[in-house]
Amino acid sequence: MEQENPELFENPPVAPDQLPKLEMEHFIPLEREYLYLRLSSWGILFFLLLAVLLVLYFTTDLPWLPSLAVYTGVLALVFTLEIVGFKVKGYTLRKHDITYKTGLLFFRMTSVPFNRIQHCELSQGPLGRLFDLASVNVYTAGGSGSDLSISGLEKEQAQQLREHITKLTATYA
């Protein structure tokens, strides 16, 4: 305990400007294919939506011009946000932690120190298999909202990352 053995644990004061800073330039962007993956999954959704609209058009007296306008409007908005927002997504690996950032309109950045990681796993969806992409999920004891998921990594790269994290985590356990 800290107060019992002050000589065992050194804790020199650190000036705020000497603290290690998380630099925004050091983030690694995700694979380009991940953008295509996201666009195709949206594409599938919009395709299904179009089918529903067509069925509604033939069975009810849906006004087709306004519906089509709304449909294209939403589609254009989603695709624009995805393409522009893709630049924001990225991760960075430091000696002691891993950070992921995402979100154009609603930015979110989470950092997980390696000495707080509970476990780490690799996951790959059906579309991911198609594009040869995988995600690395990092779990801490901080509840479900705090877990970190880095998507859009090449499968091999994801495996390396997972092994790297697992190895580092083991040194703290």
């Binding site: 154009l104 309109l105 609603f106 930015f107 979110r108 950045m109 989470t110 950092s111 997980v112 120190p113 707080r116 801490t140 004891a141 901080g142 509840g143 909202g145 705090s146 970190l148």
Partner: peptide, 28 residues
């Protein structure tokens, strides 16, 4: 603290604001 998150909406960005979330093992 287990890990930290920082959130910033487009409304906050203009004013230079952010949410800061401290995740602990007993809640955020």
């Amino acid at each position: 603290v287990q890990n930290v998150s920082l959130k910033q909406s487009f409304l906050q960005k203009r004013r230079g604001l952010a949410h800061l979330i401290f995740h602990s093992a007993a809640g955020d």
